[in-house]
């Protein structure tokens, strides 16, 4: 079991968890993830790792509360214990390529952070383009600033940085400064697809990190499979990173909707139950 040492809300519906997990912290490399299980009725949730500290023996998880399990995780208190397994997935290939543009959107900024750190440490010029719907949803700005040589922000509503999408900013960057040697994009599938479409004709090597439905995370169930270059690949062991230009994003986005009905039902039931408890006041808490 892993103890939650510290929990903070870093943006609306975004929490940062500091988890005591010395063995994983020692082994974690950029690009890897963990699977978390909250209790014996819970589901196994794949979560990205935002940071690790081998000396302190801790992992940092940044979790957006989108469904029943992540909302439930948000109700945990410091000192509570959860089950954590990892580090899973193949680490990012870190190499000094020259200029590396790190494109992050929403919750995707969290797994981007250790990759940007490692790329910068390897000697790359790291330019980070971070986007969100509003300013407060552009998370981990300070941490990403420390891991980058240059920062570019975009928001859908123009409340911070340039108004528009990260792809607009990437396009502008390339027009003004030329092609970077590499682009790493992590965020919503639709964003990663847009980045891939943009860099494909320019032949800029582009890596994306996928977050699909998963159970075991060890290559056993195949639920996470995606079509990459016409082959079926398992995100949990073959990925989570793939060449963006070979991923079938359309099929992947459809597959992400596999349990839409069940997810909605679970969320509704959870919220009803939760609100019901809240209206009963302090009795149950």
């Amino acid at each position: 079991m892993a103890t939650l040492l510290k929990i903070e809300e870093i943006a609306p519906a975004f929490k940062r968890y500091l988890v005591e997990m010395p063995e994983i912290a020692r082994k974690h490399q950029a690009g890897q993830f963990v699977i978390v299980l909250l209790h014996d009725h819970g589901e196994r949730i794949p979560l990205t790792i935002a940071d690790s500290d081998a000396d302190a023996g801790t992992l940092t998880l940044v979790v957006q509360e989108v469904g029943k399990s992540t909302m439930e995780m948000g109700t945990l208190k410091e000192g509570d214990e959860i089950q954590v397994v990892g580090p899973l997935g193949t680490p990012t290939h870190i190499e000094n390529v020259g200029t590396c543009v790190c494109v992050g959107g929403g919750a995707g900024i969290a797994p981007l952070l250790p990759i940007a750190q490692a790329m910068k440490e390897a000697g790359n010029e790291v330019v980070s383009i971070l986007g969100g719907r509003t300013k407060e949803l552009v998370i981990l700005r300070d941490e990403m600033t420390a891991a980058s040589n240059e920062m570019i922000y975009t928001t859908d509503d123009g409340s911070f940085g340039a108004k528009g999408f990260v792809t607009n900013a990437l396009e502008r960057f390339i027009k003004e400064r030329g092609k970077p040697e590499m682009v790493i994009a992590i965020g919503p599938a639709i964003m990663m697809k847009a980045v891939a479409e943009m860099t494909r004709p320019l032949e800029i090597p582009t890596v994306v990190s996928l977050n699909t439905i998963m159970i075991d995370g060890t290559g056993m169930c195949g639920g996470c499979r995606v079509s990459v270059g016409g082959d079926s690949k398992f995100v949990c062991v073959d990925g989570p990173e793939f060449d963006a230009h070979t991923v079938d994003f359309d099929l992947m986005m459809k597959r992400q909707r596999t349990f839409l009905v069940e997810e909605e039902e679970a969320r509704r039931r959870y919220l009803e139950h939760h609100e019901c408890q809240a209206t009963k006041g302090g009795e149950l808490s």
């Binding site: 819970g42 159970i215 075991d216 056993m220 169930c221 499979r225 079509s227 596999t258 069940e262 679970a266």
Partner: peptide
């Protein structure tokens, strides 16, 4: 890769290990 195609491992794991037959009492 269509939705609704499972490996036997995935189907059985959802039901046996994760107790999916008792959804939503179990989360999977």
């Amino acid at each position: 890769d269509y939705i609704g195609v499972y490996s036997a491992n995935e189907f059985l794991t959802r039901v046996n290990l994760m107790k999916g037959f008792d959804f939503p009492a179990y989360d999977t």
